[in-house]
Computed example of a mutant assay.
Amino acid sequence: MTKGHLSLSSLSCDSLDVNGGNIPIEVAWWRLGVKRAPVEGIVYSVFDEKLGPKPLCWSPPSIDPTLLDLASKKSMNLTFGIMEESTNDLAMLPLSSKKVKALVQVLKIRHHSFMGGFGERTISLLFPESEENLLYEHIQELKNAVNPVAENFLNNWSLDEEKELAFTFIKELHETVTAMLEDLQKVESVIKSENAFPPDLNSNETGTGNKIEFKIIVCGEPQVGKTTLLLKFVDGAYRKTYIPSIGVNILEKIVNMGKYSIEFVLWDIAGEVKFSKIRQHFYDGAMAQLYVFDLTREHTLVKLADWYDDVQENIGSDAVGIIAGNKKDLKARREVNEDTVKEFAESRGMQYITTSSLTGENVERTFQQLGRLLLARMGKI
């Protein structure tokens, strides 16, 4: 049975022209056989050279306009630094103010009409925070579902028909993700995962009902052990995503501290020079800073001054901070003088701690202290 030619009658996709008749999008979804997905929405965003990031098409039409704007702007930040036409990685971005997680597919479309020969596009799947454990556990399945649909969209993309193609793309993705998540939810209802996050750290009280999310940026030169340190801390929790082409690694861990449930959102910023011009896009919204250097390479401490200045220029001085001297297990190879580090930290109003990503020494202590500093800043302890 032919379902008819589709064309978008408005930028927001509020209604559709189906076989020559304009009908509300909710009715169009029903006629096209699309079930309501267990997601908050799907947004297709473009980068307009005059207006900047903007949503081109989305479903359902009732998505909060401020959420649409936030999803478009945040997802477009991920396109900086990507030169290939697409990336197979999915980025999980927290949209904390809306209690939403965005699973983002980045597209770079080659076309002569775009400045520089490439046009930026993103597809954001919006999920309520309550579904995050299910998403993190099955992110590979989601990736396997999204990538073929995105590849097909790229192969058929046309500037003149982009709105129509975007709608049919969202429809197919909506169907695919809906069916998959419904199956996963059925499985989860029978075998509920108990290991989405590792055990809480040294807490005798639960944090139920007092959840607080903290974004922490982790900075430092290449090969100082930032990522290993974070993975040691996160331990059994789910690793979110790593996008080497844009230089950011996002992980999370929930820790109960007293009566509060702290969700650490850890942004591991790549140290390579080629990412220096796009780092500021990842600083936005950070409440704490963790600077990591290598105790066996003195120049990595010296370079922290540049990192510190770059961060302060972009987020100001309100964020709390800790400096971590990593690889303390390599005592025989140390190059850094302790007094020099302490003076460096104190002059910038930060605490100093030595860590070992290899043995795990002081790793949990570092993040517990960051949590205490943040709670104290909020007047909660």
Rank of each mutant, 00 (worst) to 15 (best):
I139T: 11
K143S: 14
A145W: 10
P148M: 01
P148D: 00
E151H: 12
N152R: 08
F153V: 00
L154W: 00
N156F: 06
D160E: 15
E162N: 11
F167Y: 13
I170G: 06
I170E: 01
K171D: 07
L173D: 00
H174F: 05
H174M: 09
H174T: 11
M180Q: 07
S189G: 12
I191R: 12
K192N: 14
S193D: 12
E194V: 08
N195P: 13
A196K: 08
A196E: 12
F197S: 13
P199V: 00
D200C: 02
L201H: 03
L201A: 01
N202W: 04
G207D: 06
G207C: 04
K211N: 15
E213F: 14
E213W: 13
F214C: 06
F214K: 00
V218G: 03
C219V: 07
C219T: 03
E221D: 15
Q223L: 01
L229Y: 01
F233Q: 05
D235Q: 14
G236K: 13
G236E: 13
G236R: 14
T241E: 09
T241D: 10
S245Q: 15
S245K: 07
S245M: 09
N256Y: 09
M257Y: 02
K259H: 10
K259R: 14
Y260L: 00
I262Q: 05
E263K: 13
F264W: 04
V265T: 07
V265F: 06
D268C: 03
